[in-house]
Amino acid sequence: MLFELLYPLRDIFAGFNVIRYITFRTIWAALTALTLSLLLGPWLIRMLRKMQMGQYIRELGPKSHQAKAGTPTMGGLLIIFSVLVSSLLWGRLDNFFFWLILGATLAFGAIGFIDDFMKKVSRKNEGGLSSKAKFLLLSMVSLAIALALYYHPGYNTQLSVPFFKLVVPDLGWGYVVLAVFILVGASNAVNLTDGLDGLAAGPVLVAASTYLVLSYLAGNYKAATYLQIFFVPGVGEVTVFLGAVVGAVMGFLWYNAHPAEVFMGDTGSLALGGMLGTAALVTKHEILLAVVGGIFVVEALSVIIQVGFFKVSHGKRFFRMAPLHHHFELKGWPESKVIVRFWIVAVVLALAAISTLKLR
């Protein structure tokens, strides 16, 4: 919005010329979203408490979690609102990729909001959307995003493979299937990871920062050519949006850090997961998401392994409890230690992912 309003005035006041730089707008998008989330956090927490939107804690979970019962959830609204206002303020409103990732974030967040609201109405964790209904809604939104990309002029369906610069298979319609898988998988993986105070927010912050860098490089012809990655005209504007995400998540983490004053709920986790999946698609670094978001992948796999092993072994468990973070809790790790160690692993994986840019 500010770009459309102020940039045309650069001939009157030369200082307005700075707003054309993606880096400048990204920094201020982050600062704006951070400020909004910090200022609005206490108000939202009070409103959620007043509306009795408290977290339901399963009795089967770790006993230490029972003290968290009643902690306000649906805090993802704080992230979404801060991102929405900041990105609309600093982003270019004539950019296809900007609207696509913003729309994806809002759509996935809406599904999470419905699920959270239904849980609160029923007063039990199992009272939200059924697994089938949630999967269907996530798949429908994912398919819409995948088709929007597939039919966008100039967008190619080739797949970038880390470490192998000459391996760029063109998937054709298969790319739509892959895109749906990535989006549904990413949203669910972040959702499964959101089980401890700040556990999901930290790795999301790291992953969003990583794709912020990747979107800037993919949208810059000289940088993309030098690094031998796909050049995607216009995708640089996603950098501004991801800057807003980084700022909003940082502000949310201020209140979500252990001991948490608010949880993001499905509203936040599905929105952020869908956002990361979309970022991976539009920047043409689809497979790299498995490295950048390795924490989310491992958490999701731990659930799949646990369920599969339980069935084939007729009741035995592979982990003490799934997702994986609960396994470490039951082994005696303090919650804060699990969280910080997972954050460290997320940073290491992000650095490893960025290093692949020079190893192609």
Score class of each variant (00 low, 15 high):
Leu2Val: 05
Leu2Tyr: 14
Phe3Val: 02
Tyr7Phe: 15
Arg10Phe: 14
Phe13Gly: 04
Asn17Pro: 07
Asn17Gln: 14
Arg20Gly: 15
Arg25Cys: 01
Ile27Phe: 15
Ile27Tyr: 13
Leu34Thr: 01
Leu38Ala: 03
Leu44Pro: 06
Leu48Phe: 11
Lys50Arg: 13
Met51Phe: 15
Gln55Lys: 11
His65Glu: 11
Ala67Thr: 09
Ala67Phe: 11
Gly70Cys: 01
Pro72Leu: 02
Leu77Arg: 01
Ile79Ala: 01
Ser82Ile: 01
Ser86Gln: 09
Ser86Thr: 04
Leu88Asp: 06
Leu89Pro: 01
Gly91Gln: 04
Leu93Met: 09
Phe98Asn: 01
Trp99Met: 02
Gly103Val: 04
Leu106Lys: 13
Ala107Asn: 08
Ala110Arg: 12
Ile114Val: 12
Asp115Met: 02
Phe117Glu: 11
Lys119His: 11
Lys120Thr: 13
Val121Thr: 12
Arg123Thr: 05
Leu129Val: 03
Leu136Asp: 15
Leu137Lys: 10
Leu138Gly: 11
Ser139Glu: 11
Ser139Cys: 08
Val141Thr: 10
Gly154His: 10
Ser160Pro: 05
Pro162Tyr: 06
Phe164Gly: 07
Val168Pro: 05
Pro169Val: 02
Gly172Cys: 03
Trp173His: 12
Val177Met: 09
Leu178Gln: 05
Leu178Tyr: 13
Val184Ser: 03
Gly185Met: 04
Gly185His: 10
Ala189His: 10
Val190His: 07
Gly195Trp: 14
Leu196Arg: 04
Ala200Val: 03
Pro203Trp: 06
Pro203Val: 00
Leu205Gly: 05
Val206Leu: 00
Tyr211Ala: 00
Val213Thr: 11
Tyr221Ile: 10
Lys222Val: 13
Ala223Tyr: 15
Ala224Gly: 03
Ala224Trp: 14
Tyr226Ile: 01
Tyr226Arg: 09
Phe230Arg: 04
Phe230Val: 01
Val232Leu: 06
Gly234Arg: 14
Val235Trp: 14
Gly236Lys: 07
Glu237Gln: 09
Glu237Thr: 01
Glu237Arg: 00
Phe241Thr: 00
Phe241Gly: 00
Val245Met: 12
Gly247Leu: 06
Tyr255Ala: 00
Tyr255Ser: 01
His258Thr: 02
Thr267Glu: 07
Ser269Thr: 03
Ala271Glu: 11
Met275Asn: 09
Leu281Arg: 11
Val282Glu: 11
Lys284Pro: 14
Val297Gly: 05
Ile305Gln: 04
Gly308Arg: 12
Phe309Tyr: 15
Phe310Glu: 07
Pro323Phe: 13
His327Leu: 02
Lys337Pro: 08
Val340Ala: 09
Ile344Pro: 10
Val345Asn: 10
Leu351Thr: 03
Ala352Arg: 09
Ser355Lys: 13
Thr356Leu: 07
Leu357Glu: 10
Leu359Cys: 06
Leu359Tyr: 15
